[in-house]
Design a protein around this nucleic acid. Structure first.
Length: 419
RNA sequence: CGGGGAAUGGUGUAACGGCUAACAUGCCCGCUUUGGGAGCGGGUGAUUCCGGGUUCGAAUCCCGGUUCCCCGACCA
């Protein structure tokens, strides 16, 4: 992509009332646009990053047997009435609206009910389970207070997976597989080291659940980490009873602020009972399906990554999450420089490398400053100097090394990029 | 939802109840410059959040509303 053609620009300033680092940086870099409080649009660069994250999650979900579906934002109150979650109480998060022909609909904030209803069309016999459905779908939550930039919004895409098993035993196996897949996702997007499987309350579903918490100053949660064991527990369940159950001692734990990047729940028969999702077992009796639900918010994940790798001077995104593999910068407008940069751009894109090519007529200082903010971890610089030497400069921003002069042959450059 | 703060060109700010709402930045044009947000000149850009009221006169004072931000509570 030629940057002269990119539909967004890097900004020097950002509205003063946007305080969270992730939103400030992503707005400056032209990744996102704030539509209203707690509602952000994704622009070309931001969507590319978001799609990288979504791609990684999708691979891991497919890897454990997940099958992708797409449910709806609009919700029929009927199925929610069956589970008792249509008319809530204090923790109401519904956006409700009216159909023109009469009747109420809601905007979905999670999908246990509709997917359980859907599964009734799939499940009849014990031969039909287990299976696992997942989706990337827009959730709407009428949060009382949106905050922390894209970490807590009123509309967001969520990856939600639902497991349908014959019994608790079968469920537990998948539950652990999914927990492992989640850790692989967090490792691949670059936050594995700081992310802990965290024992937590089960909310509306069960007594306990497992969260995945990333240690982060901007996080809203407080967790107690056992570094040796690589586990943690949420402050909300930090009691003697729970500590005894987990065989942990208070003095072994360290307190940290953290952000929840994933959460997995055992639902058991809470929804299959309520909605009549039954199968016939080998003896001919009708049994409720044993369910679980598993969520990750890709946009929140991007926000957490930015919080970790960003500052007011810019960011260096992990390669797996960056919108482009390399930022090619042409310094100067001479025919020699332009020609060499154009050639390099073509050669790399022809080889399938995703290149953001800064071909604009701007000063070197501006280009570097903007590139620092855009956050692509690898940089190629073409200038009078490099052309005179018959080379191109390569910078791996993540290591902080000085730039190295490489031969302009594409093969060598490809090797550096894939290193 | 409780408490606190704010709203003026795209962005950041200024303006005693009184002159054509000012300055910086951005953006556009020209010249110059070109390895870390450079310089000069010219230009563009505002229904001062909305609706009432007070006044000869309102960005400014009063009433109502809306939106935004922060702290707290809440959070599959």
């Amino acid at each position: 992509m030629r940057q002269s053609f990119l539909a967004t620009r890097v900004r020097k300033e950002v509205p003063v009332d946007e305080v969270s680092l992730n939103a400030r940086l992503l707005i400056r870099a032209g990744y996102i646009h704030k539509t209203m409080a707690g509602v952000y649009s994704f622009l070309p660069l931001g969507l590319r990053s978001l799609n990288k994250i979504i791609g990684i999650i999708r691979e891991e979900m497919e890897g454990i047997g997940g099958q992708e579906v797409l449910l709806n934002g609009l919700q029929n109150p009927e199925v929610w009435e069956q589970s008792g979650r249509w008319r809530g109480d204090a923790d109401e998060v519904w956006f409700r609206t009216q159909l023109r022909v009469g009747g109420e609909v809601g905007l979905g904030w999670t999908h246990e009910e509709p997917i359980t209803d859907l599964a009734r069309q799939i499940v009849h016999s014990y031969r039909d389970v287990p299976f696992y459905l997942y989706q990337f779908q827009t959730k709407f939550r009428n949060e009382e207070r949106a905050k922390s930039g894209i970490l807590r919004t009123r509309e967001f895409i969520m990856k939600d997976l639902y497991s349908f098993c014959a019994d608790e035993e079968e469920h537990k196996v998948f539950y652990e597989q999914c927990a492992e897949a989640y850790m692989r996702v967090f490792e691949r997007v670059g936050i594995g080291q700081q992310t802990y499987r965290t024992f937590a309350s089960g909310g509306a579903f069960s007594e306990f659940s497992d969260e995945f918490q990333t240690v982060l100053p901007a996080g809203e949660d407080v967790i107690y980490v056992h570094k040796e064991k690589g586990v943690a527990l949420n402050k909300e369940v930090y009691t003697d009873a729970v500590l005894a159950r987990l065989e942990l001692q208070r003095e072994e734990l360290e307190e940290y602020p953290a952000c929840e990047v994933g959460n997995i729940f055992t639902l058991g028969m809470r929804f299959s009972d309520a909605l009549g999702l039954l199968y016939t077992d080998g003896r001919g009796t009708q049994v409720p399906v044993y369910m679980g639900s598993y969520g990750i918010g890709p946009a929140r994940l991007l926000g957490v990554i930015v919080e970790m790798v960003g500052s007011d001077a810019g960011m260096v995104l992990p390669a797996a999450v960056a919108p482009f593999a390399v930022h090619l910068i042409a310094l100067g407008e001479s025919d020699v420089v332009q020609g060499a940069a154009d050639d390099l751009y073509s050669a790399l894109t022809d080889r399938g490398v995703e290149v953001l090519y800064d071909d604009r007529a701007m000063s070197a200082g501006e280009k570097f400053a903007e590139s620092d903010i855009v956050g692509i971890p690898r940089r190629l610089v073409v200038s009078e100097k490099t052309c005179a030497a018959g080379k191109v400069e390569y910078v791996d921003r993540a290591t902080g090394e000085e730039g190295r002069l490489l031969d302009t042959a594409v093969a060598g450059i490809l090797q550096e990029l894939s290193a």
